[in-house]
Design a protein around this nucleic acid. Structure first.
Lengths: 215, 215
DNA sequence: CGCAAATTTGAGAGTCGTCAAACATAGTGG
DNA sequence: CCACTATGTTTGACGACTCTCAAATTTGCG
């Protein structure tokens, strides 16, 4: 995390770039991967488009997260703003050069990429093994883990995304996403305030939906 | 890849370990992650078990692949042999130490982990967006990309895995996996020789099933 | 050759995707 | 200020697909 207290090797090397609007494309799949980005504020979605018009959201990136890793010199995914966003942008060649001189910095990046891998593996578990309710609960808990969206006093969760984003993240149709919310509401786990605001009534119940490790 | 020709920083540092049988557990989720492994020969499956008895195969690791990345000091997944396997095993603290002295070595690891991340992202696309037929085609093409399994002269693909592995990799039931093979056979794309041997009749047709990038 | 395990097929129930329509919300212009 | 419109969300109906349970069939090996 880019917490203000810790020494921050990224901040001093990077230039700050800001996007005021939501829905802006930071970079697109296939473009030359010249920069790596770190989020200072706001939310970014990492997506991939398929020719049949479908879209999969691979991840939501939050403050402190890094994105823009090259795959053979080009971006493997597209990055789009979901809110107003402030980013640190750093040229790759610049970073590589610095990392060659500073193994600690490189280790820092390695740990972050490894963490991204583990997050991706959790998503594979989610898409391969969990039901629609479980996936939705996982998404809600993911956002509820961030103070900027969740107030645990009144249980209000303010989602920065719409239903299509929810659906494309969970790998389901938007109607199915809406119905999944209805189901959790009927079961008393949450209550809809408005489409993007959900009051979580039983967060332990949501967690109980999540599959536990076995063996 | 650990091809014999290239300079190989791993081989010289590691100890060779061999497993003769299939179905052996190399390490389990939750254990202290003391070693990192590189495959010299054979196939390993990376799996995660869920308490309801379900299992998801996250990846099949082939010769040249690295696995055993720690997540907060412990393994996030379980690794099991699928065939007889020969591995290079290297203590983590040993590797870290060497990487601090040799940035090139560390960059080598970074690239490999980044590659794992991109593979995981392709799996998210597969599980989130593709139909059963498409997933199966992707699996077949994945193994067909390795000479040790696929003979492109006669089109014979020798799978090292059984139907349960196929199903747990694709995130479907084993009956559905069997039916998916039947369907591709009925469509003339392949022919079953025996359960683990499949003759691919139309590899271009399998590739055509794969979704193309859009935008 | 025979048996245990793996694979395939069948039938029925449940879930999801699609098409359509109803409803809600926010912003716009009169 | 209000009606109106565009957009986003929810609900309904129905067909398609997948999972589960069960049985038939095949395979691999002793």
């Amino acid at each position: 995390m880019l917490s203000p207290g810790e020494p921050d090797p990224w901040r001093e090397l990077a230039t700050l770039v800001a996007y005021d609007r939501s829905g802006f494309e930071i970079f697109a799949e296939g473009e030359d991967a010249d920069f790596i980005y770190a989020i200072d504020e706001g939310v970014v979605r990492i997506v991939r488009y398929v020719d049949n018009g479908q879209r999969q959201i691979l991840a939501f990136m939050m403050p402190g997260d890094l994105f823009g890793l090259p795959d053979n010199g080009t971006y493997a995914n597209t990055a789009e703003t979901i809110s107003a966003v402030r980013l640190y942008r750093l040229p790759w060649h610049n970073l590589i050069q610095r990392m060659m001189e500073d193994p600690q910095l490189q280790l820092n990046l390695l740990v972050r990429v490894a963490d991204d891998l583990h997050r991706a593996q959790r998503r594979i578990m989610m898409l391969g093994q969990q039901s629609t309710s479980q996936r939705l609960a996982a998404l809600l808990l993911e956002f509820a883990g961030h103070r900027e969206f969740y107030d645990d006093r009144d249980g209000h969760l303010r989602l920065p995304i719409n239903r299509v984003d929810v659906a494309d993240y969970l790998g389901i149709a938007r109607e199915t996403a809406a119905r999944a919310i209805t189901r959790l509401e009927r079961e008393g786990l949450l209550r809809r305030i408005d489409p993007k605001t959900i009051q979580i009534l039983d967060i332990a119940g949501l967690r109980a939906l999540q599959p536990a490790k076995a063996k």
